[in-house]
Design a protein around this nucleic acid. Structure first.
Lengths: 134, 134
DNA sequence: TCCGACAATGATAATGATTGTCAAAAGCGC
DNA sequence: GCGCTTTTGACAATCATTATCATTGTCGGA
């Protein structure tokens, strides 16, 4: 058993999914991405889209957000760890960084003896545009 | 139109749900709580449990967590806003406070002009006990 | 105390995203 | 090119949550 990942094959579908993720902006649901692929003429099964996204998420290549709405949203993000400021109304998302938060999370976890720490954080609000509309 | 909540009625079911929440520890799913109510002999419909929990959550009286597992978990928490440090393996949860995080979240949101800000944060890790078992 | 309006309940069906299944179809090392 | 293995994908299954809607229980006023 080795720590490499030799059993990873390059397939048309996998790069297709990866490719759409590069083109779209913001967060998209799995079903959304699947629809986009079909429009492009790429034949990819919905099941595969789910699997691929899950894989990418595990590998840390994409970000997953679980909004109160229900569906999981995926997005190709800048490499570094960061968080999101999401508009409740229009779903526009802004990437924000918070070194302080990272440090804090790790410190707190350490205090309690927790290891392999990760964390998720989403900030919800109403963006200026949507606030103005009301 | 007033800011009071006059159209809120006290029902047996509502206090039953509230009561179980006081007795249990840690997070429980809606279905879990429903099962507990039945054991106690309280006849409360599953639908009502969901509705009541939602109401309490909206009112800020209970906390909702959405772990990657799928179900929503509810818990009566200390009043103040706080976050959770959850063990990946045994689901043990520790309440933690982070004034710095609150401030940071609001600051960031304000910088982008966002209003009515709220946020969610969960820290996941492996607690000392579970880490030792492996 | 009684009454009537209306919120609340709850059994059941519906929803809908995600996961499981498994035979068929590609990749990759040789 | 060959064969072993992973991957794919159509479809069924799962399962928490929500919608429906007729019935029931509350509560404020008469």
């Amino acid at each position: 058993m080795n720590t490499e990942s030799p059993a990873q094959r390059n397939t048309r579908q996998r790069s297709a999914v990866s490719s759409v993720l590069n083109e779209v902006e913001g967060f998209n649901s799995a079903q959304d991405l699947h629809a986009r692929l079909r429009e492009r003429g790429e034949r990819v099964g919905l099941t595969t889209v789910y699997r691929t996204l899950q894989g990418l998420a595990d590998a840390g290549e994409i970000d997953v957000m679980r909004p109160p709405g229900g569906e999981h949203l995926y997005r190709r993000c800048s490499q570094g760890h960061h968080h999101h400021l999401v508009c409740r109304a229009c779903a526009r998302a802004v990437e924000v960084e918070g070194p302080a938060v990272e440090t804090w999370a790790e410190k707190v976890a350490a205090q309690h003896g927790f290891a392999e720490v990760s964390h998720t954080m989403e900030i919800f609000g109403t963006c200026p545009e949507c606030a103005a509309k009301r």
